[in-house]
């Protein structure tokens, strides 16, 4: 088994941490995992992305040209990565930050109003967990419980009070995406 996930957004939207949380969860499940950020000047210019690879065996390349799972937090990421998603793959788009629909029909694209959902829970910084929750509907390698356990095990003590909210954000993203998926299947 090997699965690659690419997460991209503006700096500050939590894309890198979203990837780290998934990497922790995969590690805690006994998997091999790599997390690699974009650390170049583009990161300083405002966009940030990371790639997470989860596998049973020693991982080769930490990067893939056509990831089967992508989260796009904003329009530039949506524009850049939509065409790169592996056919049959899944693309989670933060609908709050884009002004167009999907242009591909050979992948599953799920639009999630991430900013609004996060603000409803009470903190816009929960955007990344909403988006991760949405991806989990199409990511059999990890469950909400895995992510929650990873947050609990690896968040610094001072942030632990935010756990219930993070849990809620994951669930909200998951439920929203699940409903969208059901609509698409019908």
């Amino acid at each position: 088994m090997q699965k690659e996930i690419l997460i991209a957004g503006f700096g500050g939207q939590g894309a890198l941490f979203a990837g780290q949380v998934m990497a922790y969860a995969a590690m805690d499940n006994g998997k091999e995992v790599t997390w690699i950020p974009s650390y170049g000047p583009e990161m300083r210019g405002g966009t940030a992305n990371c790639t997470v690879v989860i596998a049973d065996d020693e991982i080769g390349s930490p990067l893939v040209k056509n990831p089967p799972a992508v989260i796009a937090f904003n329009l530039p990421s949506f524009d850049k990565y939509e065409e790169l998603v592996q056919p049959g793959g899944v693309l989670i788009v933060n609908q709050s930050m884009v002004d167009r629909g999907a242009s591909r029909t050979d992948i599953i694209t799920i639009f999630v109003p991430g900013n609004e959902l996060a603000e409803e829970i009470g903190d816009r910084r929960l955007l990344n967990m909403v988006m991760v929750g949405a991806l989990l509907t199409r990511l059999p390698e990890l469950s909400i419980q895995d992510i929650e356990t990873a947050l609990n095990a690896h968040l610094p003590e001072r942030h632990k009070k935010l756990l219930p909210q993070n849990r809620l954000a994951l669930q909200r993203g998951y439920d929203y995406a699940q409903k969208e998926l059901e609509k698409q299947i019908i």
Partner: peptide, 10 residues
């Protein structure tokens, strides 16, 4: 190199 330096792995 920068890839291995910046990468996180267990």
């Amino acid at each position: 190199d920068g890839s291995i330096g910046q990468m996180m792995e267990p």
